[in-house]
Design a protein around this nucleic acid. Structure first.
Lengths: 342, 342
DNA sequence: GTCGATAATGTGAACGTGCACATTCGAAAC
DNA sequence: GTTTCGAATGTGCACGTTCACATTATCGAC
């Protein structure tokens, strides 16, 4: 407000800093990128000048000169899903801690064309790497066929590499859920699965199949859902007529909650006549009626790891070896001993 | 893979295009920014060259030269909230339709320092404008005091301007909710509010107070919650002892769902002894038991409008006049006539 | 045919940084 | 005191655009 005669409030550039510190602009650049051969005294002088002028590097210029943007792209198709959202928040935070920014791109539909277009767009923004949260198999096929020059990491799985273990995690989690039902005495367990193409859906189904066959039980052909509570509801109403199972493992909490609603409307009591377990442990899971048994995955940690991986790939260094994440079974009221049934 | 002798796979630049089209690089630039004075024939020649070379403008170079990034910053503190998430998706989509990209920044805590730092960071990325989804009053105080040179738009409200109407919307919605309860014969309605500092919390409370006083009823001192289902649960357990109200209007669905759980655990039957209505219409609201009456706000449209506003502000043009958005009352099973009580 | 005005195009210099390549400095070795 | 070599710093250009300012076509009016 107090107008002093400055006509050009143009922000300070690296050359202004250089002038003030009586060094060349290149020396300033070296200080900024902590080049080893800088005398401590010079470095201090430069840093002082930077502080005095409130200098901030121009990211566009840096990107132009170095063709690195310090930008990470997030390609997502599942926003709204609780897990995805938590992971995105974690990714964003982790990225910022490493000096990267995030550009998110939500896929409205996941046709190969749309995916290709989305990747092209991110590439156009010259992101240094991409994290994919659109865990559909076809997405990988498309991306794989694109011959990208920048690294791509997936939260769910990737061809080889330790990200694969993350997927393994979900298999484990699903196994936990089913084993919980079996431990309660159930032998006829139905799986309400996710859509065919989804990696997470496949992992969870694999866990279901593994657990069943490990217990020498025959699996029931799963129902394919679409992750939504609405689908769960309709499934519940339809399935109420069938009596070839006494427990359901739903591939996510939303479908489980809808399912319980459907059963309720159809006159099937949960858990008295039917046990239901979900997956994710969304915040409302503990507050619905009956409170929902489920499996908790640490999406936040998953997101963090994805970033670490991607940054390693960008730097060309070896990805760090992570220990496995252990999903946790949360037993609540929606599951009950089979013995108490009927 | 088929190695033809190209040693420099460097992407085509504007000068390459110019050469191929036998024009100057400036003419190409004019075509790209659709300058009026370009002969149609020339334009076609340039466009052909662009297609032939698969030329894509270098965004960093453009940003450097024009000091405009076509980047929008989203400053958010409420990720995970259903409404916020839907709005973000809509914002991202709308922004892309206008050729803008999105850089999201999630606030872990909303201390003035953190907010200032976040804005500084976005400014450092040279975003052309910021959309704020951290609807706390203090956020505006901080941002207002920063003297920013780029436009800032809020999804919730802003000092003057038509965004204010958006807030009005939420007042309307809250009024709808309370009027619904009053129409059912309730006279003693409690409000489970959001945190003090939140604009949305204030709007919804204002709607509550308006509706009560319009009906010549005295309001009960509201309870301050934190938006979470967990808080709702504890509130329900505590409030069960009180009998000076027969209905509760919760400031969001999550608290409402928790509240019903708390009442249930404390032996208060919803809706038989107590009516509960929420706000937001989250996807599970229709599947919990009892299904939750609530008010639906069109967050998607809200997000779209925020983008339109911001882009207008960036271009310096007048913001378009929007009609008011009308929140919709969704009556379900958690609310019931007072007459049927006791 | 000349003039002027506007349309259409061209020229050179920014923009702020990093890179490749000098150059200078300083101290140890002889 | 010269030589040598690495550490410390400087010089000029390139990155791919846009901007400000020429310059050249085009066309109607006289």
């Amino acid at each position: 407000m107090s107008g002093n005669g400055e006509t050009k409030p143009r922000p300070a550039s690296i050359r202004d800093v250089a002038r003030l510190a009586s060094v060349s602009h290149q020396t300033v650049s070296r200080v900024l990128n902590d080049h080893p051969s800088i005398r401590e005294e010079t470095r201090q002088r430069v840093l002082d000048a930077i502080r005095t002028l409130d200098y901030r590097p121009n990211l566009a210029a840096r990107a132009l000169a170095s063709s690195r943007t310090n930008l990470l792209g997030i390609l997502s198709a599942t926003v709204g899903e609780y897990g995805t959202t938590s992971a995105i928040v974690a990714i964003e935070q982790a990225a910022r801690e490493h000096g990267y920014s995030i550009s998110t791109l939500n896929l409205a539909d996941s046709t190969p064309e749309a995916i290709g277009e989305a990747v092209r767009l991110l590439q156009h923004e010259q992101v240094d790497g991409i994290i994919v949260l659109a865990p559909q198999l076809r997405v990988y096929n498309v991306i794989g066929g694109l011959g990208l020059s920048i690294p791509v990491v997936s939260l769910q799985t990737s061809a080889g590499g330790s990200a694969e273990r993350v997927a393994e995690d979900q298999v484990d989690g699903a196994r936990l859920a089913v084993e919980h039902l079996l431990a309660l005495g159930h032998t006829d367990v139905l799986h309400l699965a996710g859509p065919q193409d989804w990696i997470e859906a496949e992992s969870r189904m694999r866990g279901y199949l593994d657990a069943m066959s490990a217990a020498d039980l025959s699996a029931i052909p799963p129902i394919r859902g679409d992750w939504t509570a609405d689908f769960g509801y309709f499934a519940g109403r339809e399935l109420a007529a069938r009596r070839d199972f006494t427990a359901v493992f739903a591939a996510n909490d939303l479908m489980a909650i809808g399912l319980m609603h459907g059963f309720r409307d159809a006159g099937v009591a949960v858990p008295a006549e039917m046990s239901v377990i979900g997956f994710d442990d969304v915040p409302v899971a503990r507050h619905v009626w009956p409170t929902l048994s489920t499996v908790r995955i640490d999406f936040t940690e998953l997101g963090r790891r994805a970033v670490t991986h991607l940054l390693a790939a960008i730097d060309g260094s070896a990805p760090p070896a992570f220990g496995l994440l252990h999903p946790e079974l949360i037993a609540r009221d929606s599951t009950r001993r089979y013995a108490t049934h009927r």
